[in-house]
C-alpha cells in the first residue's frame, strides 16, 4: 500500500504551514492523498494522521463524512450525473438511465475495466445548464444521450486528457505563498490588536462591540 511520497509530504507540510492549527489542513491533505492514489489508502491516511497530529481513527472519522473521499478504488473517471430538481425537470433521470445502460452499471459502482465510476449526485451548481454532469469534477452542460456517448468515447480515446486529469486531481494550480510575503498565520493564542486597528484606536468601536 502506498504511503505519501516524499514530494507529497513536502507539499503537505507547505499546506499545513498556512493554518493556525495543523488539523485544519486535514481535508486538503486527504485530497492530496487521493490525488496521489486515486482513492484513500489506509497507509496514506496514517501518514496524514501523523502529519496533522491526530489518530488514524480521527482521520477516518472526518474522511467518511465527505462524499468525495473514496475508501476503495474507483474508476479513472468518476462520472457524476446530477438528478436534483433543475436537472430532473429537464431529463436528468433519463440521462442517468442512459448512463447506467451504456456503462452496464448502477450508480456507486465501477466498470470492470476500471475506467468509469458512475454516481447519481445532488445539485452541482450548474442548474441553468441542465441536465448536466461532471467527469472528475469538470463540467459538461445540457447533455443529451448522444453527447454522453461522445464523452465516453473521447474519454476512452484520451481525447479529453488535457481538460480532465485522472480522478483525485482537483485544482491543478496550487496556492503558493512566496516566502517573505506571509503576513500573519494567526494562531488563536495571538491576542494582539492588529496594528491598523490600533492606529485608529479612537475608532475602536469600529472593530465591533455592537449590541448583539
Amino acid at each position: 500500500m502506498p504511503r505519501l511520497t516524499p514530494e507529497n509530504v513536502r507539499r503537505a507540510k507547505e499546506i499545513i504551514s498556512r493554518y493556525p492549527r495543523p488539523r485544519s489542513a486535514l481535508i486538503p491533505l486527504l485530497h492530496l492523498a487521493q490525488e496521489q492514489d486515486g482513492w484513500l489508502t489506509e497507509d496514506a491516511m496514517e501518514d496524514v494522521a501523523e502529519l496533522v497530529g491526530v489518530t488514524p481513527a480521527q482521520v477516518i472519522g472526518t474522511a467518511s463524512f465527505y462524499e468525495m473521499f473514496k475508501m476503495e478504488p474507483v474508476g479513472r473517471y468518476v462520472i457524476n450525473v446530477c438528478t436534483n430538481i433543475s436537472c430532473l425537470l429537464l431529463g436528468g433521470e433519463t440521462l442517468l438511465q442512459h448512463a447506467e445502460a451504456t456503462l452496464g452499471i448502477k450508480p456507486g459502482s465501477t466498470t470492470e475495466d476500471g475506467l468509469f465510476t458512475l454516481e447519481d449526485v445532488e445539485c452541482v451548481a450548474a442548474c441553468t445548464e441542465a441536465p448536466c454532469l461532471q467527469v472528475n469534477y469538470r463540467y459538461f452542460y445540457r447533455v443529451t444521450n448522444d453527447d454522453f456517448d461522445r464523452i465516453l468515447a473521447d474519454l476512452r480515446d484520451g481525447d479529453l486528457s488535457r481538460d480532465i486529469p485522472e480522478h483525485g486531481i482537483l485544482s491543478r494550480v496550487p496556492q503558493r505563498i512566496p516566502t517573505g510575503k506571509v503576513a500573519n498565520i494567526t494562531p488563536p493564542e495571538d491576542q494582539r490588536v492588529p496594528v491598523w486597528i490600533e492606529r485608529a484606536a479612537p475608532d475602536k468601536a469600529a472593530a465591533g462591540g455592537d449590541e448583539a
Partner: peptide, 30 residues
C-alpha cells in the same frame, strides 16, 4: 498567487500597515 506577488495580499498591503493572509481551503462534498 497573483495578488500575493503584486502586494495586494500579504505584508503591508499597498504600502500601508494593513497585513492579511488569504488562504484557499477546499471541501470534499457535503
Amino acid at each position: 498567487n497573483e495578488a500575493y506577488e503584486a502586494g495586494y495580499i500579504g505584508r503591508r498591503i499597498l504600502g500601508t500597515d494593513f497585513s492579511v493572509d488569504v488562504v484557499m481551503h477546499w471541501g470534499a462534498g457535503a
